[in-house]
């Protein structure tokens, strides 16, 4: 029963500790050992061996605690008390990051134990005052903050270096971007005179094409062949067209080679082989007769025949 009571007491004491998130390994171990008998069924008592183990563990734990407390005393005159400056404690934890972890653990433990509280209450107050005075100090607007002077110099140098590096890098990047974007122009929102001129040129081209298409694709739309007058006109037109075509073909064949851009007849047959120039121009068919058996037919004769036949059509 006494042991049980003790365990309950211990639990009560360790209550606040349980809520704290950061525990050392030893803390966890102690929790296990102390809480173990609590969940023990009433009938079963711990065996002697186990008891021994528990005792040993508890001893270890205590000794450890003491040791660490001693170290704490050696290192720092003040350590935060549990009831006095929990908030300050946290703050100090945030700011003073130079403390190594073991010290932090020690401080935790110090806040846990009664002894620690009593012993270091005075010291912690002094620390708190010092800390508050630091915090309340009005600092010049220095991005580095209150740091040791030697370190300050180093940090300043480092920052300056970084800045210069960044500047160089950004400049190089900008330059690269400029080179990459060379020639890239965002057009203006309005149409300037040049663009208008260009659109005009293009429009003329389109208009010409459309007019030509209209001329070719339905030339007789306006004339009604059922009317006698129109029919006459139509027949005349056809005749004229035919004759002009005849003339055109002879003339074009004469100076085809000399002219670079040559207007083609508008009413040539649609299918390629029907055209008069098919045999002449197609490279495959050009010398068809010369390849295999040259003596049979003369190429020129063939061409003339072809031309005349197409004209009659």
């Amino acid at each position: 029963m006494a042991a049980k009571l003790q365990s309950i007491e211990a639990a009560a004491v360790k209550g606040p500790k349980k809520r704290k998130p950061n525990h050392g390994k030893t803390g966890n171990a102690s929790k296990k050992t102390k809480q173990y008998p609590r969940f023990e069924p009433m009938t079963k008592k711990p065996s002697k061996k186990m008891k021994k183990l528990f005792r040993k563990r508890s001893r270890d734990y205590n000794s450890d605690d003491e040791e660490e407390m001693k170290r704490e005393v050696d290192l720092d005159p003040g350590s935060p008390g549990g009831d006095l400056g929990n908030n300050d404690d946290d703050k100090s934890m945030d700011v003073l990051k130079d403390y190594n972890e073991s010290d932090e653990d020690a401080m935790d433990k110090a806040s846990e134990g009664y002894q620690g509280i009593i012993k270091f209450a005075e010291g912690s107050r002094a620390f708190r005052m010092a800390f508050l005075s630091i915090m309340n100090k009005n600092l010049p607007n220095d991005p580095l903050g209150p740091v040791l002077s030697a370190h300050k110099k180093l940090v300043a140098e480092k920052l300056a270096d970084e800045d210069a590096e960044h500047k160089v890098k950004s400049e190089a990047k900008k330059e690269k971007h400029l080179v990459a974007e060379k020639g890239h122009v965002k057009p203006a929102g309005f149409l300037d005179s040049k663009e208008k001129f260009l659109i005009g040129v293009a429009t003329k081209g389109v208009v010409k094409l459309f007019n030509a298409v209209k001329k070719v694709q339905n030339p007789q739309k306006s004339l009604n062949p059922s009317k006698s007058k129109d029919a006459k006109a139509l027949s005349k037109q056809r005749k004229e067209a035919f004759i002009s075509e005849l003339k055109k073909q002879t003339s074009t064949s004469a100076f085809r080679s000399s002219k670079v851009f040559q207007t083609k007849e508008e009413s040539e047959p649609g299918w390629a082989p029907l055209r008069d120039s098919y045999m002449l121009t197609s490279s495959k068919l050009k010398d068809w007769d010369k390849i295999e058996d040259p003596p049979t037919v003369c190429g020129n004769d063939n061409v003339t025949f072809d031309e005349s036949s197409s004209e009659e059509d």
Binding site: K204, K208, V213, K264, E265, E266, R275, T281, S282, S283
Partner: peptide, 17 residues
């Protein structure tokens, strides 16, 4: 000519434009 191109009115006439 080999490709037997038809008159491209828009192309050829723009020389006159």
């Amino acid at each position: 000519q080999e490709t037997d191109e038809e008159a491209e009115a828009s192309q050829e006439t723009d020389e006159d434009i």
